[in-house]
Design a protein around this nucleic acid. Structure first.
Lengths: 210, 210
DNA sequence: CATAATATTCACTCACGAGTGAGTTACTAT
DNA sequence: ATAGTAACTCACTCGTGAGTGAATATTATG
């Protein structure tokens, strides 16, 4: 039951945000009295936290492992593209293969990522993986300015979050040619796209160090 | 007074979203009775719409003009980077030079862009400029697959929206080296970064047409 | 100055959301 | 079977948010 509550809360929060969802909305869709949510979770905030935390650990561990593996395999000469593939593809696979629940979680996180309130959650949970990625990127781009790498990551994460948000915007813009839900299309393109961007801003204009 | 109400609503909506803000919150910060908002605006939704619409026309016209100018100047051979500079730099300049109000509007729109509800507003207002950009990008990349261009744009807009959201995340991640508010830093890098990405996914793998 | 229009407040209603504590059902183990 | 605990519902409170219509203040206009 708790799992069902989390599933529905995840879905609704992903669509309307924390304040746009009432405990009654969730309860109704689960088919249960709304005070049951207070039985399982102290309050609304606790429920939200639980939704966030439930899957966070999975994606974090997977990506961390993928980055470690890549780092080890690449030895002294990791590439930007390799690191991004490890980071992005691992995550995207989760959403591709994980079913509706994971897709909803992606949208849930994506919405958090673009608001100041939600960003604190991102900090709290995802900082370690991100810093691990950045560590490898630095190794791949040894002479680059640190700022360039952070801004590059910023671009990457913005693009990823918009993907996970599944807003349907690209569908309309492209008149049905592309689909928000088509994470495979993103996976095919994203790491290469971003790697090229990194190289452009990092390798070209080396900074005043070293 | 109406302008002040819009300013405060813009700020609060940008932080907490539509449902996270009450008319009383807005009224209080303006220093006015909350029912005054019902005098100027039929209801909360109307206020939200007004906030969205107020500055939309400005950024749309500016970018449209910049794209037209670029298209004309570039003649038969526009470049991806040129088009992106016209599109992105024009917008970023607005946020850099427009003061706090414009920054808040950026964050306001950025939050909308990552939620299904808000995305409808983006469609409604911004589609024409975006399609104009895409038109030029197609000219710059004549042999590329259309999907690649749409996905490229998707990455661009994701990165831009996260920038405008000013979540403070990059500040913490980079331990103070980079700043969310530093749109100039983004302007310096973004068009080049993204142009390289476009070239990577569009020029390399040409599609089954032509 | 009077008066009309505009701007603003006030008192109020209605609805609803979060949460509580007692009560009920259902399962579990002896 | 039955005591005991876990799962769940019910009736209710408290607060508050959106919105309305009348009242008052402020400004503009002839």
């Amino acid at each position: 039951m708790m799992e069902q509550i989390l599933d529905v809360a995840e879905l609704l929060f992903s669509k309307h945000g924390f304040y746009g969802v009432t405990l009654k909305d969730v309860a109704k869709q689960v088919g249960v009295h709304h005070t049951l949510l207070n039985y399982y979770f102290d309050d609304k905030q606790t429920l939200f936290d639980a939704v966030f935390a439930r899957r966070a650990v999975v994606t974090i561990e997977k990506r961390m492992k993928a980055l470690d593996d890549y780092d080890k395999a690449a030895g002294d000469s990791p590439t930007v593209e390799g690191a991004l593939h490890a980071f992005l593809d691992t995550d995207l696979d989760l959403y591709i293969e994980g079913g509706e629940g994971w897709k909803n979680y992606g949208a849930f996180g994506a919405q958090a990522s673009n608001s100041p309130d939600g960003a604190e959650y991102m900090d709290k949970y995802f900082d370690p993986v991100v810093l691990r990625l950045i560590e490898i990127l630095k190794k791949a781009l040894p002479d680059s300015a640190e700022e360039d790498i952070f801004w590059g990551y910023h671009f990457v994460t913005g693009a990823l979050m918009l993907t996970l948000a599944r807003t349907g915007r690209i569908d309309k813009l492209s008149d049905g040619l592309c689909h928000s839900e088509d994470y495979s299309a993103v996976k095919q393109r994203m790491a290469r796209f971003m790697a090229a961007g990194f190289k452009e801003i990092c390798e070209q204009r080396k900074h005043d160090k070293g």
